[in-house]
Design a protein around this nucleic acid. Structure first.
Lengths: 229, 229
DNA sequence: CCAAAAGTGTTTCACTTACACCCATGA
DNA sequence: TCATGGGTGTAAGTGAAACACTTTTGG
């Protein structure tokens, strides 16, 4: 059936939804397009998949090239291939979903002459192509996954306070959580290493810092343990 | 940036993992390959995506063409694109995951001159390409999803007994469930319509038949109800 | 009357939820 | 000393899990 190779082929791209978190908001990384179609519009970082690289590899390369970002968590999200999604012709895109520690990634002005910026996810500008759909799906995935996999930590600095962690969940899940119950539950999991340090430069009692214990999590995972909210 | 279109493009296919359930086993639909590579080997049904059809559309078309199947549930699973996965060259495949009522799909011998058959998922033959990985991922997805979405019903006939339903979950989740707790929980959800009929032709007390109430589920979904196990 | 599966309730235990006050710190 | 967030425990309610016998039917 090698004649099948003579079929015309769609173009193949990857696009990445990269989330970050700061004191104000959950943020998403966008790039301003320089060329048609959608010149001037904001869009997800992404680009064409090369013949010799994996899909994950393409996603990582594009993030590095377009924004100098190496995400702490990267996973495939969904593949979008509706025939009309790119006005230039048939382009199928494999969308990825990534989390970064914003503190590590202050954008040092547009790596490859493009404009890159973080936008609050709930107030993103109008996006190019079907990227609004991609973003929406990524948010749904984040909201779902954060509850049963400890990926949220990839949005925080290595050392964080329980209040920061709680705020992370509140922002992502879009609801308030009870402080005492939250702390009880998380500490009971025994996945947070309690440090002998406190946050600095606050004008009130300084909170204790914790670190997520990846090693312990991997152990527990094997024994059938399930992280849950 | 339309020069990018001159990049060489990977070929794009879809492959489908179709599950069915009978009295013995959870089954997966396989097609025997007629040509190289992997001639004679069993593989997932699938084929090339046409320029004018959606990815879902391609999956449905291939299932129809290769096995005469119209699945009750079809969803995108994952996109596999490791550079070496097809010996002929770069082929990226969008994998789908489908459920059918086996009773509706007794295979009427190979629609397009190919051999198609149902295999027990835990005893599938050696598969072509990376299809074993695809199957493994589909199983993981099924196992996960069946617990929080009522898709299992797509594997059963429209009218079924609670015992059949329980067996379905036991087979998929690979563990035994307590009969009383199972019935209590499911009936409490109020999603099963109790019919005035019983199963036929059994040599013991006949069990009552139930029907899944899709309509009611859609209602409840809106009100924030969550199906769970 | 025997075999086979259908059908049915209660208790225990664990976890979730709701809820309010004192403490430590820096300004 | 005041403002700000940090940190803590208990009681009530809800849901999960464990568990065994009687009923119905056909052979």
């Amino acid at each position: 059936m090698s004649y099948t190779y003579e079929y015309p082929r769609p173009a193949l791209t990857v696009d990445c939804v990269v989330f970050g978190l700061d004191d104000e908001d959950l943020k998403v990384l966008l790039i301003r397009r320089g060329v048609e179609p959608f010149a001037g519009r904001w869009a997800l970082p992404g680009g064409f998949v090369r013949m010799d690289e994996s899909l994950d590899g393409a996603a990582r390369r594009e993030l590095e090239e377009e924004a100098g970002i190496r995400p702490g968590h990267l996973e495939q999200l969904y593949t979008f291939g509706a025939p009309g999604r790119d006005p230039r012709g048939r382009v199928v895109t494999v969308a990825y979903f990534a989390l970064v520690k914003l503190s590590d990634h202050v954008l040092h002005a547009a790596t490859d002459a493009r404009e890159a910026a973080w936008f609050p996810v709930w107030r993103a500008p109008k996006l190019a192509f079907d990227h609004a759909d991609v973003l929406a799906m990524a948010l749904r995935r984040l909201k779902g996954k954060v509850r049963y996999q400890p990926i949220g930590f990839e949005l925080l600095p290595p050392k964080f306070t329980l209040t920061q962690l709680q705020r992370l969940y509140e922002v992502i899940l879009e609801r308030e959580l009870d402080k005492r119950n939250f702390r009880k539950k998380l500490l009971a999991m025994d996945l947070l290493e309690e440090l002998d340090e406190v946050e600095q430069d606050v004008s009130h009692r300084a909170a204790r810092l914790y670190r997520f214990d990846h090693r312990k999590y991997k152990q527990l995972e094997k024994t059938g343990f399930n992280f849950e909210l």
